[in-house]
């Protein structure tokens, strides 16, 4: 059973990622990383939408320079958990959160943590692409201008072009950078949203199924980008593709019905899950 899973993962990896050495290198890096700093820690998180108990007593930590993948069946609360990490759930009236989440040791739900600063430091890419109805340029420049990270047109240009380049969008849109972001295709929009998020240069980036609208080539680009970003940031990525989780993440969390079932090194979760539910899910018995 377990060997079978392994084989599938291997196969998939080979199909999309011909560069196998990279995969191995990444794994060894994790093992060498002796200094494990926790950027964010979530303790005993419960989330309710009115009476719907969406997250049940979840605790996990997000380490510096790691990619944490969250997997689980649809509706199990992955997006909800992610949205707690930058308090974007605050704007939903019916949503109630208990527990504690800390960013660099400071409680983010306490009144003296400025939510604007939090969201600047914890960026987010949403499940559905949501570009502003503004030009591509203004979409990317939005965050840096807000926080006055740029003081001149040249600086803005530099950030906008580099971010578009990093998500592989620059060559596709270079001649229409002043056109509306909503005119792009779904996949391009999603990459634009990623560019917009990294332009703020946050400490932690939350990505909710960033590749669900992308073709394999664009997916590969994003995965490379995630890997590159890891050198500076922490990344939490929700994904429905176990292959993707296996390829990009160092650790994996498996959610089911609002509960955190299993959390561990990606290699361990995929090859040797501790929990029957996890095994059922990754072997495709369920989900």
């Amino acid at each position: 059973m377990q060997t079978e899973t392994n084989v599938t993962v291997e196969k998939e990896r080979i199909v999309i990622h011909t560069d196998t050495s990279k995969f191995d290198a990444r794994k060894s890096e994790v093992n060498q990383n002796v200094f494990i700093e926790n950027r964010m820690t979530a303790d005993n998180i419960d989330v309710y939408y009115s009476d719907n108990h969406a997250i049940k007593n979840v605790s996990l930590e997000i380490r510096a320079n790691e990619v944490l993948a969250i997997i689980g069946p649809s509706g199990c609360g992955k997006s909800t958990f992610l949205r707690c990490l930058n308090r974007i759930n605050d704007i939903i009236d019916s949503c109630r959160i208990t527990g504690s989440i800390k960013l660099d040791g400071k409680e983010i739900y306490s009144s003296d943590f400025d939510v604007v600063e939090l969201r600047a430091r914890v960026g987010m890419v949403f499940q559905k692409p949501n570009p502003f109805p503004k030009s591509i340029y203004d979409n990317v420049a939005y965050g840096p201008r807000l926080h006055s990270l740029v003081s001149s047109r040249a600086e803005t240009d530099e950030i906008v072009y580099s971010c578009l380049e990093r998500v592989g969008l620059l060559s596709e849109v270079s001649d229409r950078i002043q056109n509306s972001g909503t005119e792009l295709s779904g996949g391009q929009q999603q990459r634009l949203c990623i560019a917009r998020a990294i332009a703020v240069q946050p400490d932690v980036i939350l990505m909710d199924e960033p590749c669900s609208a992308l073709d394999p080539i664009a997916t590969a680009k994003i995965e490379d980008l995630i890997d590159e970003l890891r050198s500076q940031y922490s990344i939490v990525i929700v994904t429905h593709s176990m292959q993707q989780a296996a390829r990009v993440s160092q650790r994996t969390a498996y959610f089911n019905l609002g509960e955190l079932i299993e959390l561990g090194d990606t290699s361990q979760v995929f090859t040797n899950p501790n929990h029957q539910l996890t095994e059922d899910y990754i072997t495709g018995k369920f989900g």
Binding site: D114, E117, A120, H147, S148, L149, V150, E158, Q201
Partner: peptide
């Protein structure tokens, strides 16, 4: 990668200018 990007660090968010602007 750009120079701006590399300069970037936690320090930006902790800087007094940022805190003042935030206020």
């Amino acid at each position: 990668m750009s120079s701006v990007q590399i300069q970037q660090s936690k320090a930006v968010w902790e800087s007094p200018q940022f805190k003042k602007r935030l206020k």
